[in-house]
């Protein structure tokens, strides 16, 4: 074997090279940087488990070092038998039992509905999310690909899917729950910090599975109410000549068969609601920014950006028309 493998110097280099990986432990979707009550519980469990795992590892390696280096002679077989029976048979079920019990004791609160609080319905569809909020007037309003939550309030989610199993996971706020066709699963979350986080699909669902994310914005309750009211209102009329032509082109080219823009004749339900698409922090489920240029790219070649996407490419439209549609959509704040 190559001796440099074992030299401490080469290990030092490796540690140095591995260091940037630790950067992955923070950021907008880290379970290790909890920003919600439930994520805190999960993080606490993680740290306890890691601590005990390190302890057990230390004991096992310690025993190995003891019998090979420190006292490499024959040992009392009775002590050895008790060690093996105790450490190999009795302790593991106990440790697993305690972990199981602790995990189970967290479950009821993680899925408890916020009976009187806000209830949001989310449907995972290939490869985006349909989001329904209740409005103050008692109705519901359909949005897409973005979830906003008031800070400090417990919010209930009802999750489902019309096609295949997806999942709903906001690591910074809580645990992962699957979205299963024909069933409604539940989750409840209580964010404790204002900020922008990231949610992901963590159940492989097809070619664009990795491009099925969403932004989660935790806001002060007042700002949240204003936001919801604004999202519930119809789309603003196009500003300027280009945008006006954009709206015409949008309606004339059949976009309205799949997309709704409240306040216009477009009322399709196959694709994401676009009434306030310009106000979102990302386009096409966390894949692009929401500037006019990205809209152009998306409309002409959605399949280049998301393989297998359920929206046809519109690159046959003349460039100025695509440009005008993009201008119109990016104005829809």
């Amino acid at each position: 074997m190559d001796a440099t493998y074992l030299s401490p110097r080469s290990w030092g280099w490796r540690a140095l090279i591995a260091l940037p990986l630790l950067g992955g432990c923070s950021g907008p979707q880290s379970t290790l940087q909890p920003a919600g009550v439930d994520a805190e519980q999960i993080a606490r469990l993680f740290w306890w488990m890691s601590g005990f795992a390190i302890l057990i590892w230390g004991v096992v390696i310690g025993c190995a070092v003891f019998v090979t280096y420190i006292k490499p002679r024959s040992h009392d077989s009775r002590v050895a038998r008790w060690l093996i029976l105790g450490g190999g048979v009795v302790v593991p079920p106990l440790v697993l039992g305690v972990l199981l019990a602790f995990g189970l004791s967290l479950l009821p609160s993680l899925s408890a509905p916020a009976e009187d609080g806000l209830q949001i319905s989310v449907s995972g569809e290939r490869w985006w999310r349909r989001v329904r909020y209740p409005t103050p007037s008692g109705g519901t309003v359909e949005l897409a690909n973005e979830v906003r939550l008031p800070v400090g309030e417990r919010v209930g989610f009802r999750l489902t899917s019309p096609d295949v199993i997806h999942s709903f996971w906001i690591p910074s706020l809580g645990g992962k729950v699957d979205m299963i066709p024909g069933r409604t699963t539940r989750l409840s979350l209580e964010p404790t910090e204002v900020g922008v986080f990231r949610g992901a699909c963590a159940e492989f669902c097809g070619t664009s599975h990795a491009l099925m994310n969403f932004r989660v914005v935790v806001m002060e309750p007042d700002a949240f109410d204003t936001w919801l009211e604004q999202q519930a209102s119809p789309a603003r009329p196009p500003q300027g000549e280009v945008a006006r032509r954009g709206q015409e082109a949008f309606l004339a080219n059949g976009c309205g068969a799949c997309h709704a823009i409240r306040g216009t004749s477009a009322d399709g339900v196959l694709g994401p609601d676009l009434t306030h698409v310009g106000s979102r922090l990302s386009l096409a489920a966390g894949t692009l920014p929401t500037d006019a240029e990205s809209f152009e790219r998306w409309i002409s070649h959605p399949d280049d950006i998301k393989p297998g996407v359920n929206m046809p490419a519109f690159d046959m439209l003349p460039a100025p028309q695509i440009h005008s549609i993009a201008t119109y959509l990016s104005q829809l704040e």
Binding site: V89, P93, L96, G97, L100, A101, L104, S105, L107, P108, S111, A112, P113, R186
Partner: peptide, 22 residues
Amino acid sequence: GGLSFVATLYVALPVVFIESCR
């Protein structure tokens, strides 16, 4: 038998903590 004993306890454990159909 020992394995099954422990496993049966684990199977029963959820109803100790979970009180609803949710």
